[in-house]
């Protein structure tokens, strides 16, 4: 799981307010995410993890520092270039799905590809393929209101993948889901991980650890801990130790 850094943050900071009311939401963070890594950034609400994700995805600009995605320095890019880069190279997944209510599942998924300039026919083909990949081929014509929370999030993940992004950034993707739906989303992320998709998830849900190669704990705008896991290919490899602690 190590390769050249796909995403890099160098002394990235984001401050709000000034003087005694100054809040260092992100406090001079250094981060390298190699291609193919699944990174989970965990921490309590207010620790700065969502702000960090927004900075990494070019949704917000840092107060200081540099952010690089592949060979592009994104923190100094023009708004227009940044919007284009986000559309083409970054897939976003949010806690509250952010689907268009009046569009069907397949229309939601193909929208990103259409905006990126793909032909309607190819965009539709790709969207149907992705819905199949997330196990929702038979829900393509459904409106979001006719889907469960877990299904909506899977549509949102399919949408995030529609432009074959370099990286997928997810903000509390299981935050609104019950445990069965969380399992569906984790399984999907696990499939992405084994397929080599680079993925950064910020969450306070420790279950995300199941699919992470690496976990960073964040406190008060800084990294408190950075652990890497050696993940065997087979899921459930740890079954033998699972029950040991509880008798």
């Amino acid at each position: 799981m190590t390769g050249p850094a796909l995403l890099q943050a160098r002394r990235v900071a984001r401050w709000y307010g000034r003087g005694s009311a100054l809040v260092r939401a992100v406090d001079e963070i250094d981060l390298e995410v190699p291609a193919g890594q699944t990174l989970a950034i965990m921490g309590p609400s207010g620790c700065g993890k969502s702000t960090l994700l927004h900075l990494l995805g070019g949704l917000q600009r840092p107060t200081d520092g540099e952010i690089w995605l592949a060979e592009h320095r994104i923190d100094t890019m023009s708004e227009r270039a940044l919007a284009r880069l986000r559309r083409r190279h970054i897939g976003f997944v949010f806690q509250s799905f952010h689907l268009m209510d009046e569009l069907t599942a397949v229309e939601n998924v193909e929208l990103a590809a259409l905006l990126a300039g793909q032909s309607p026919r190819r965009a539709r083909q790709r969207a149907l393929h992705l819905l199949d990949r997330v196990g929702l081929a038979d829900r393509a014509k459904h409106l979001p209101s006719a889907l469960s929370g877990g299904q909506r999030q899977r549509v949102a993940i399919a949408r995030a993948l529609s432009n074959e992004p370099l990286i997928v950034l997810a903000d509390e993707p299981t935050g609104n889901l019950d445990s069965a739906a969380t399992l569906e989303v984790l399984r999907l992320f696990e499939d992405l991980r084994t397929a080599g998709q680079t993925l950064v998830v910020v969450t306070h849900d420790a279950r995300i650890a199941a699919i992470a190669d690496r976990m960073i704990s964040m406190r008060d705008g800084s990294f408190a801990d950075d652990s890497r896991f050696t993940t065997s290919a087979a899921t459930g490899a740890g079954t033998g130790t699972v029950y040991g602690g509880w008798r």
């Binding site: 399992l183 984790l186 399984r187 696990e190 420790a206 279950r207 650890a209 199941a210 699919i211 992470a212 976990m215 704990s217 408190a224 801990d225 652990s227 896991f229 899921t235 459930g236 490899a237 740890g238 079954t239 130790t241 699972v242 602690g245």
Partner: peptide, 24 residues
Amino acid sequence: IDAHRREVLRRLRDSQRAALERSV
């Protein structure tokens, strides 16, 4: 506390990975 948190996290990870197994 950190050392314990890492250990609990490791166990949680193992358990949750077991739950991901579709054949479970």
